[in-house]
């Protein structure tokens, strides 16, 4: 369990900024596909339902078709479209294999922030000392192996010491290329991060849309109340 308590280990790896666009449905769909295929086998998103995903991500213009698409292509770990997105792997097995249950990822983006996720996903490196053979510069001694190493390739990390003698991350070196170019891999991870931001708060686009109407109404109401007040107060001196 101490594995988790050093989350965000401070070896000076600066987080790479990522641009988030929840209106970009293609990016969200791509992120969702990666998520259900690669993350959901071990991690859950247990506060989220498949049908909500189908409704918001619009895999088709017709909501029924969109649900059908999700039911056909994404329902690996559940029976019904209204189910919560639970992990395929039982928690007990996960504890046996990794020493720790993989955390639920529904709220990851609200907990860690998008930049952290984007950088973390791209910062796995070979480490013979770690039980899984992998380590991560953003999350030191993380129990998770590099699931997407076939895409990204295998990289080695180089560290230097700063003035205080503390080990700090210097750079990565690719020792075996993956099936995707670095640009394509970064783009995929951006889509996945984008999806995590959506997953953290599915209502956020609606929230902002409603917000503009509320503000518009209040602005108009302010004009009315202001003149009402002025009318009443003209005889107060």
């Amino acid at each position: 369990m101490p594995v988790l308590s050093v989350a965000g280990g401070g070896n000076g790896h600066k987080l790479d900024p990522v641009s988030i666009d929840l209106e970009d449905k293609v990016s969200l769909q791509r992120g969702a596909t990666i998520f259900v295929n690669y993350c959901l086998s071990c991690h859950s998103a247990a506060y989220m339902r498949y049908n909500r995903l189908a409704k918001d991500l619009k895999f088709s213009d017709d909501p029924k078709e969109s649900e059908k698409f999700v039911a056909k292509n994404m329902l690996f770990a559940a029976d019904k479209i209204g189910d919560l997105m639970k992990a395929a792997m039982p928690i007990e097995d996960a504890k046996d294999w990794f020493g720790v249950a993989p955390p639920d990822l529904t709220l990851l983006a609200r907990y860690r922030g998008p930049d952290w996720i984007y950088t973390y996903l791209r910062s796995f490196y070979l480490d013979e000392k770690s039980p899984s053979g992998w380590n991560n510069t953003v999350f030191e001694n993380v129990a998770m192996p590099h699931v997407l190493y076939e895409w990204q390739g295998t990289q080695k990390a180089y560290f230097t010491k700063n003035e205080e003698g503390v080990k700090v991350f210097d750079r990565f070196e690719m020792i075996k290329s993956g099936t995707k170019s670095p640009q394509d891999f970064d783009k995929d991870m951006r889509d996945l991060t984008n999806f995590f931001v959506y997953l953290g708060e599915p209502s956020q686009l609606k929230r902002q849309r409603v917000g503009w109407y509320v503000l518009l109404f209040l602005a108009l109401f302010l004009v009315v109340t202001y003149f009402l007040k002025k009318e009443y107060w003209k005889d107060v001196h």
């Binding site: 929230r207 902002q208 409603v210 917000g211 503009w212 509320v214 503000l215 209040l218 602005a219």
Partner: peptide, 9 residues
């Protein structure tokens, strides 16, 4: 208006 600006955005 101030409350809504925080609440919605």
């Amino acid at each position: 208006i101030v409350l809504s600006s925080v609440l919605f955005f």
